[in-house]
């Protein structure tokens, strides 16, 4: 394969650049602005964590990149450039050729992502042959290797099985193997550990991490769990109500968050040090994207809010060129995390 780590190190252009992405859902009750102006970029081989509460639009962002938003959802503006190519409004055939080959995705619930009436080998071989005219037997051998690479023993037997004969953890490993079959440059993982047991979560996390690092695959890890991102990502983007509110190197953001929302998120993660203490909680509920207040969406829950916050803040560089925050009253840089 020509795409590998050394090359990634040479090319300084980002692999994926998202600007002002809007994905809206036309519902009977009105327009739901699930994603409403997301800016995000991922470098080659970079691991980025996209963190937010449920309903913040993080999954829809992932689907938007893949071009897999289903009606009533529709792109309402912005651009997604992958390796210099514009994906928004791209011809369906060209987008399909990209999907599964250069950009792959792993979904949340492994019990639902594999087709229950097709054998594993069918579902793996078709993923290769959708993109390359290659003999079935050779494709099969690649599937065996792919399963072994994600730590599945007796791969040949597993290939002849149906999904319901395998455990959830096994199925998620297979889903990951399928996603990596064609050696994509970008892997989007939409909370792939959420539906699994805690013990499995760690295994899958470590597996994905080692696989993408070894192959130089860029990774967008979508999660609601900050603690997952801490050990995994290079950079983290925090999403709130359809927008990125803060982004930066993962250590910097976790050590000294700039956005009050990020601080609240960090504070609500249980740590060993704080055992026995009552966990601080974010005030109020996450707003539904249908009834967003004008201006900063976090304003009603924020203790630093002023009348100025009724005007939407921009996502601006802050505290060094590699950090950005969308807040009129960011926390002072260098202030310790709670």
């Amino acid at each position: 394969m020509s795409r590998s780590t050394p090359e990634a190190a040479i090319d300084p252009r980002p692999l994926l650049e998202i600007d002002g992405l809007r994905t809206w859902f036309a519902t009977r009750a009105g327009t739901l602005r699930a994603v409403d102006g997301v800016d995000l970029s991922i470098g080659r081989g970079e691991v980025v964590g996209l963190v937010g509460e449920s309903g913040s639009g993080k999954s829809v962002t992932g689907y938007s990149i893949m071009g897999l938003v289903e009606p009533p959802g529709h792109p309402a503006g912005g651009s997604i450039r992958f390796d210099g190519q514009e994906l928004v409004g791209m011809e369906a055939r060209a987008l399909r050729a990209l999907r599964g080959r250069r950009i792959a995705m792993v979904f949340q619930d492994p019990m639902l992502t594999l087709n229950p009436v097709l054998r594993i080998d069918t579902q793996m071989v078709e993923a290769i042959r959708a993109h390359e005219p290659i003999a079935g037997s050779r494709a099969f051998e690649r599937c065996v290797e792919a399963l072994e690479a994600v730590g599945i023993a007796a791969a040949r037997q597993r290939l002849a099985a149906y999904p319901h004969e395998l455990s959830g953890g096994m199925r998620q490993r297979i889903a990951i193997a399928i996603a990596l079959l064609n050696n994509p440059e970008l892997l989007i993982a939409d909370e792939p550990t959420t539906a699994l047991d805690v013990t499995l979560q760690g295994q899958i996390l470590a597996l994905v991490q080692s696989l993408v690092r070894r192959r130089g695959t860029a990774l967008l890890w979508i999660t609601h769990d900050l603690s997952v991102v801490a050990g995994l990502a290079d950079r983290v983007c925090v999403m709130y109500a359809g927008r990125i509110v803060e982004s930066g190197p993962v250590d910097a953001v976790l050590d000294s968050p700039l956005h009050p929302y990020t601080r609240g998120l960090i504070a609500s993660v249980p740590t060993a040090a704080g055992a026995g203490r009552r966990l601080p909680q974010l005030r109020g509920h996450a707003p539904t994207p249908m009834e967003l207040p004008p201006g900063c969406a976090f304003r009603p829950r924020c203790d630093r809010a002023t009348p100025e916050c009724a005007r939407m803040p921009e996502l601006l560089p802050a505290s060094g060129s590699d950090r950005q925050v969308r807040c009129h009253h960011p926390l002072p840089a260098g202030a310790p995390a709670p």
Binding site: E70, F107, L114, N115, A127
Partner: peptide, 12 residues
């Protein structure tokens, strides 16, 4: 999900 996943694989 499995239909969406099949599309994510780039199947025609």
């Amino acid at each position: 999900d499995y239909v969406r996943y099949a599309r994510a694989k780039g199947l025609p």
